[in-house]
Amino acid sequence: MGQSYFCDYCGCYMKSDVNVRKLHNNGISHTVAKYRYMRRFDDPAKILSEERLKKPCQRYFKGYCKFDLYCNYGHYSEQELKKLEKLVAAQKKSKSRRRKPKKWPWKTHHHAGLPPSLRPMELAKLKTSNFELNWG
């Protein structure tokens, strides 16, 4: 029995053949499913600004738009846009509350906080070192 290939974006199985997979991956349903998945990782502020510029899609709100997320018109309802606005506001608020990181100790105490192996070399001590030691 032949192997089958599972598309994670579309959630479907197909014959594990290069030509079949290429045909599937170039199809509109796969492209939309992949775009929808990747859109989850976009910045909400970016999505909000893009969607605010679009007019509402009449086809989508009547029930079906074949262009889905590639449509030139907006597919977000007013309620969804308000939720997105709240999310963006919450993100901005949490970013403003973040504390500044503490300064590293060696930047204020002239390398005192560094372990000896990471401190800069002192050339005066290096000149007085005896490298003529017998090891082992």
Rank of each mutant, 00 (worst) to 15 (best):
R52M: 04
L53Y: 00
R39M: 06
Y64T: 13
Y35L: 08
L84G: 00
G63K: 09
W104V: 13
T31M: 13
G2C: 07
H110Q: 08
Y5C: 02
K22R: 15
Q79G: 09
K54Q: 03
H110I: 01
Q58T: 06
E132C: 03
M38A: 07
L23R: 12
Y73N: 14
K95S: 13
L84R: 00
I28G: 12
L48K: 01
K54P: 01
Y60Q: 06
K62L: 14
E132S: 04
K82G: 05
I47Y: 00
G2L: 09
S129A: 14
L126I: 02
L48F: 01
R40S: 03
K66Q: 13
N19L: 09
P101G: 02
D42M: 06
K46Y: 03
Q58N: 11
S96H: 04
P56C: 01
Q91R: 15
T128Y: 10
L81Y: 03
K86D: 14
I47Q: 00
P115T: 11
K15C: 12
E122H: 13
G113E: 04
R52W: 01
Y35C: 04
R21C: 10
K92Q: 15
R119S: 09
F131I: 01
D17T: 06
K125C: 07
R98G: 05
K95N: 10
F131T: 02
L81Q: 06
Y13N: 10
D17S: 14
R59E: 06
G63E: 04
V20N: 13
I28C: 12
C65T: 10
W106R: 02
K95L: 15
S77R: 00
M1V: 15
E51A: 01
L114N: 04
I28V: 14
C10Y: 00
K15N: 14
K127Q: 10
R52Y: 01
N130V: 03
P105C: 06
L81P: 03
K107G: 10
R98Y: 02
L53D: 01
Y70G: 12
H75L: 06
D8Y: 03
Y60L: 09
I47F: 00
G11C: 02
D17Y: 08
R98V: 12
K34V: 03
C71N: 08
V32R: 11
Q3P: 10
P105K: 06
H24C: 11
Q58C: 04
H109G: 08
L69Y: 05
H111W: 14
K93N: 13
N25I: 07
W104T: 12
R36N: 08
G2Q: 07
K86E: 15
R119Q: 15
P56E: 02
N72I: 07
F131N: 07
Y37C: 05
L48T: 01
S49W: 01
D43V: 03
N134F: 02
L87W: 11
L81S: 05
F61H: 03
H24L: 12
N72Q: 15
E78C: 11
W106I: 05
Y35H: 13
K102Y: 05
M1W: 10
R36L: 12
S29P: 07
R98W: 06
P101E: 11
K46N: 04
P120N: 05
L23G: 10
S96M: 09
M14W: 05
V18E: 05
L114G: 02
M121A: 12
G136N: 06
